[in-house]
Design a protein around this nucleic acid. Structure first.
Lengths: 344, 344
DNA sequence: TTGAAAGCGATACCAA
DNA sequence: TTGGTATCGCTTTCAA
């Protein structure tokens, strides 16, 4: 018993005007008299008419849909970036297709085709952008669909890219520790094949050099996303090199892990009240913030991840392209700020 | 210089067949000879043709699009549920519209209209479902668009709902503590107006009664999402009622906060090695797991949030409805499991 | 200011 | 097994 769907024809009939008029009222384009406009609008919500965007975009206009391909929406960074994107687009009356590419290369290509077939106006690729190949690029150009990447690390050719300034973030973190008087600083976390990590390490090392501090490669420790390993690694590092007085943590989960690692060594995390003069204090700072870091005692200072801002900026950039602007491809770098919480 | 878009007409022309034939090849419906089929397929990817789904769904078919309205994608629970939904739908060749309704009631209605206008085949509402009113319900029915809710707590009428079993989750958590020998158990976290909390409290109280344990309303403490407050609340609670030996935590962030609260009182969290016989041990258990809970020393036991499974189940249910099954509206309840980590 | 009519790209029915 | 063609709902000239 599905009530026959209401179309502009029905509206036109009921309002006693032509379909063309209804269409004009809908889009607010032609000059329509006050009275007609009101009458049409009235019949529209009397009949419960909903405009069919598929039909309108078929005829010529935009679809009002942008596609987002994200590797894994569960990663807080991408979740927040997605939220930022969504906010911005929804404010423009656009809506987001969300596809998850997963870890495999084939995922991206599959998502890409799906989006094209659905007639999106533009595509945002977030994460896993190294899988973006020339073939996809070409296809996007051919279809006239602008492409833009948002990622945690750099490295694409001929495509707009919005990303955090990993180097600057690490620099800020390191300088923060140095200004607090630390001279023996280690870097903990991330895996060797991570581009993001490479960039952050760059900032870390450069800052040490800049301040004339020693750089020791044994103080740069890999450890993967499993929290517990970060704690182990921190503990091990501190036991082996008791001189270390501060650690730059590759990401927030590592910072949290390191926090527990420090406690296990019997030392204190710097910033809290000094309970004992016999305990050494180790300072921690995280790159990429997360709410959990506010929780420890003392709470941990971190560098913001700027995920939401990256989302906003990406959306704005894509909107420019959609507006038909002919722009050079560009890397847009979003800076981070320090979120000081009292650890030092 | 946008290359004119390739349509099936172009393909038909190039392959020397009719558009009807191409369409049949595309959908694999009519019986087409091997040779023709191959020739068509060949020209298709020679010309780089991409099928326009807007056009096909206009004519009659499904759009292959499902709308998802989520209050805030940044909440890990909903992020993971979204991931589960996406996986399932993508496996069926469907794609997800993601809209964020935000905290306001108006948000839901706006998202809802947007989705209808875009011609989605079905709609999933995740979170904020108490804003779902009769008007929207009616509109969905009128448009023939199945509606389904996925949420953390119950309470809708006439709409399919997939949700966790909050009561059972709290029951499990409480029983877990009781079996470890605890008799003085408190409940910490959540706000009074939360339905989810009400359900969990129900399970908590029922279990206490069932085991003949005392139920004291002063041991049921509200505290909001700010982590730090959870620590304060736990500390305060334990100082005021030193008899309390275990706490059921409303969610994972509260559990983490409570962990620090316990430490501040000078007590130990149960499960670790006994450092001192003079310290009391307080057991913690979280409802809704999160990776951070594996991090503390000792790691915290929790009840799984089953977010991904809720996503899967919701998707399956909607797919049934899309397949035209005429089903009774139903509440589907997903059970939780204990993730034991050694705290007790 | 409004109306009539020609498509947009794909589908599906009816013929051939 | 294939080909013509009306049709989906809407936009957009061009006339009235």
């Amino acid at each position: 018993m599905s009530h026959k769907k209401i179309t502009i024809t029905d509206v036109a009939l009921a309002a006693g005007v032509s379909v063309a008029t209804v269409s004009l009222v809908l889009s607010g384009k032609g000059r329509i008299s006050q009275t007609t406009s009101e009458r049409v609008n009235h019949t529209i919500d009397q009949l419960g008419f909903v405009r069919n965007r598929q039909a309108s975009s078929l005829r010529g206009g935009e679809s009002g849909v942008v596609g987002l391909i994200v590797r894994d929406i569960c990663e807080p960074f991408y979740a927040e970036m997605t939220a930022g994107l969504g906010e911005m687009f929804e404010a423009q009356g656009k809506v987001l297709f969300l596809l998850q590419s997963g870890p495999a290369a084939s995922g991206l290509a599959r998502c890409f085709d799906t989006l094209l077939t659905h007639g999106v106006d533009g595509i945002v690729i977030a994460g896993g952008i190294h899988y973006l190949d020339e073939k996809m690029r070409a296809k996007a150009v051919e279809q006239g669909v602008p492409l833009i990447c948002a990622s945690r690390s750099g490295g694409t050719e001929g495509v707009d890219l919005v990303r955090p300034d990993n180097m600057q973030a690490a620099k800020m973190a390191t300088e923060y520790l140095i200004r607090k008087g630390h001279k023996q600083i280690a870097y903990l976390g991330g895996l060797g094949n991570s581009l993001t990590r490479a960039e952050r390490l760059g900032g870390f090392c450069a800052t040490l050099l800049q301040y004339g501090l020693p750089f020791r490669s044994e103080w740069i420790i890999e450890c993967d996303y499993q929290h517990r390993l970060a704690a182990d690694a921190a503990e091990d590092l501190l036991r082996r090199y008791p001189k270390i007085s501060a650690i730059v943590c590759h990401k927030s989960s590592v910072a949290l892990g390191a926090y527990f690692g420090v406690l296990r060594t019997g030392n204190q995390v710097a910033g809290g009240s000094l309970n004992s003069l016999f305990q050494k204090q180790v300072a921690l700072i995280g790159i990429e913030d997360s709410p959990e870091l506010a929780l420890t005692e003392p709470p941990l200072t971190a560098v913001s991840n700027s995920a939401r801002e990256i989302g906003h900026t990406t959306a704005r950039r894509l909107l420019l392209r959609l507006a038909g602007q002919n722009l050079e491809t560009q890397d847009i770098i979003i800076h981070s700020t320090i979120i000081e919480r009292g650890s030092a």
